[in-house]
Design a protein around this nucleic acid. Structure first.
Lengths: 204, 204
DNA sequence: GTCTATATGCGGATAGAC
DNA sequence: GTCTATCCGCATATAGAC
């Protein structure tokens, strides 16, 4: 693995574990056993490391947008959400530290906005399709609200688990479950048992 | 106003506007026109300022818990939520910067946990009462999920508005509105027009 | 209570040798 | 590409005079 990639991998791990604000470039270099000067040879500033990681984050989410195209039933959605939340978890610093990132490095803001808006669009498309297929019944306004609330879970789930002791050790399936429960009241009767099954699994 | 209180007021304003992590004790002193030494005479460390502010945050939320006791109809809830979100806004650094606060100053974590759990309990009580009174129909599990999703909006609304450009200038009424829409599918028919009215106001 | 002055450390980032 | 050495600024926090 090239040094550049090792820097990105190590940065990602540290940012995820300790927060992007709390991890210094010196620290990243030290963990890799390289010198700060070497690190700055590959990235001329800390925001450039962040920018590169957010780019990878964006790329990692593309499969979710693809999977969305073939969501017709509730368990397609379940699968797509797992895909999504696993990637969100792999880059969990991104949304969790979004406020710091946009504040200290404003050049990163457009990218974060685009990424989250892309996910909102994907969710909208999925719900519109589920509704067309009869899996759920909701009017346009309701779909719009559901999409926004889904995005809230998608972007804020990580910080939320830290605030609620009960959710400390929740896996990413738990997040996907909570998205599905948002849909609960709008599901067709045929789709409902699937949700009941998941409820037994997660709400014990 | 005593110096101690001026320090707290100025700190709150700066933490809200620029983030608790980004505001230094020197900066607070400078904005007040006092010396750093003077500031440290009143608070022997930065976490002590934060601790005092989180205490005030907690106190500011007590009226919401009180108001909860007399929530019987949907517009009681609407009023209580406004009260809540206005205080959340006055101390918006608290939940927004919770991750930084708990990470850098672990002694603050228990307080933030207690505060959010108190709000979860209040919301649970309100929904149980609304259900008893026939304003909404939901089983125990549904109430539990609604309470948790409400807490998600309560704690994460601020960061969420920064991530979604469309919500940049949303007022605290918008947050209250989104809590009510969570209840939408469970409302009794008599209560529904109220929500429709609000939807016209916020979802134009 | 309030000030000036300062200790101490760490952050991002660079220069220049190898 | 990688290193050593270092600059500069800012952070928290303290000492001691007024």
């Amino acid at each position: 693995m090239k040094t550049r990639d090792r820097i990105l991998a190590q940065s990602l791990a540290l940012f995820n574990d300790e927060g992007a604000a709390a991890v210094s470039t010196n620290r990243i270099a030290a963990e890799l056993g390289i010198s700060p000067g070497n690190l700055y040879y590959h990235f001329k500033s800390k925001p450039q490391i962040l920018e590169a990681l957010l780019k990878r984050f964006d790329d990692a989410l593309a499969p979710f947008a693809d999977a969305a195209a073939s969501v017709h039933e509730l368990d397609d959605l379940w699968l797509a959400l797992h895909l999504l939340f696993e990637n969100l978890n792999a880059f969990r610093f991104a949304y969790r530290d979004a406020d710091y990132l946009m504040r200290e490095h404003p050049q990163l803001a457009p990218r974060l906005h685009r990424t989250s808006m892309a996910q909102l669009a994907t969710v909208r498309r999925i719900y519109a399709e589920l509704q067309r297929g009869g899996t759920m019944r909701a009017n346009e306004q309701e779909v719009e609200l559901l999409a926004l609330h889904t995005l809230l879970v998608v972007t804020c789930w990580q910080p939320f688990t830290r605030l609620v002791p009960e959710l400390r050790d929740a896996d990413s399936g738990r997040a996907a479950y909570h998205v599905l429960t948002l849909l609960g009241p709008y599901l067709a009767d045929e789709a409902r048992p699937y949700l009941v099954y998941l409820t037994h699994k997660y709400l014990k």
